[in-house]
Design a protein around this nucleic acid. Structure first.
Lengths: 225, 225
DNA sequence: ATACCCGCTATTGTATACAGAATCGCGCGG
DNA sequence: CCGCGCGATTCTGTATACAATAGCGGGTAT
């Protein structure tokens, strides 16, 4: 059984993608604290590729604000204060709300059926004696992705890509109690109803509320940070 | 007088930046129509740099949806249909509206004074017998940049960066008649009032209306496209 | 003791070289 | 006559080499 699951499952991706994932992982895990310089050669040694894919990964991380540039052009790990996290949630609420509104216009019967199956899986994961958080996270992500894809806006998808931090979602869900998890599923259900009714405003409002509630759950989970 | 003004004025920027600007220019000018393959070596010859900076420019253009990837990993000039342009305006309206709301909270006296001077310049440019469109565009951009910077959100700035297409703004303004231009200045003035009153919702609403009007001006200017 | 200047080193920016994958055209077979 | 497979060619992905520049530390003069 060579290697661990994480690296094995990503072995097929390109070197740039692996570099991106790995470096981002270092940042999000806190192994590289804010202000730490991101030196290309050092990272190349860590990831095990040359500087070229490292550079591409860093440019991407810079554009997503994981890293910031010093006056002299060096990259350092960016500071993420609570204001920025709140801003990320606010932007997500707006953009995913917009996605939901678009999706309400464009939703197909097949897409709707898939959403229902997906949320049924979420409800099942929540209903267990010990809620299955991992399952919840997987299916929750899928639920949101289905809506995003139903919105048929590549631009929206691109903008949201760098905004939906799974580590943040995970931390949020980890603090959800059963009632919160059930509420989430219920909100998803409301969205399905809004899609069925093709009511854009309703869909937008439910999605916005859904994400803003997540913001406050996250803030309660880590009050000082 | 060697070279032209454009290339001369950008000679100091890095090779990657020049590549980005030049390639984007080719796309926006229509020299490279949608579907045209963007081959790295060919572009390297055109721009006069090696493939490395070309690659960085292309990754950036790809992330901003100027280019899209074929199944095999080749880049081609992306198709921009009227739906996508409308979507860009919609997103701009949301995001700049959000920026205006944040700015209303954070606006300083100095920032407000600068906005007033800026809009005075716009009004002057509009009031001339032959409205000074170039001046209008410069100061208009500055006006919006001032608000964005007053909003103090690096993330918002990053998201809007790829969205505010000067060529589109230019085409829009080119079709504005004097009344439209005056209306623009008047809307700016309303924003200044909203900032003075620190009324977030007002600022957001005026900004949203401002940009949505621009969308319709743009659509009227090029009805078939 | 402190502030400034100079030279060295570390680090990024750019170019080039090489390897692997995808596409296109040709010839073959149905 | 059309479809399919296979090889040559083209293109991208990655590694390495070279150039330029920013930052740091030591040394010196005031």
């Amino acid at each position: 059984m060579p290697g661990n699951a994480t690296s094995a499952s990503r072995a097929a991706a390109s070197a740039s993608d692996r570099a991106y994932t790995e470096i981002r992982g270092l940042i999000l895990a806190g192994d590289a604290s804010p202000g730490t310089p991101l030196r290309e050669e050092a990272l190349a040694d860590i990831v095990g590729v040359s500087r070229t894919p490292i550079r591409e990964a860093l440019r991407r991380l810079e554009s997503e604000l994981y890293a910031s540039r010093t006056p002299g052009g060096r990259l350092v790990v960016a500071e993420w204060d609570s204001d920025d996290v709140a801003e990320m949630f606010a932007l997500r609420a707006m953009l995913e709300g917009h996605a939901a509104a678009r999706a309400a216009r464009r939703m197909t019967a097949a897409g709707l059926a898939e959403l229902k199956r997906c949320n049924a899986a979420i409800e099942a994961a929540v209903a267990q004696p010990q809620p299955d958080i991992a399952r919840f996270l997987t299916e929750n992500r899928r639920f949101h992705d289905l809506i995003l894809s139903a919105s048929s806006s590549a631009r929206l998808a691109a903008m949201l890509a760098g905004l939906v931090e799974q580590p943040i979602v995970r931390r949020t869900a980890a603090r959800y109690d059963r009632a919160d998890l059930a509420r989430s599923a219920h909100e998803h259900d409301q969205m399905i109803q809004a899609f069925t009714a093709r009511d854009e405003d309703w869909a937008r409002a439910v999605m916005t509320a859904h994400i803003r509630r997540a913001l406050h759950a996250f803030q309660n989970a880590s009050p000082s940070k």
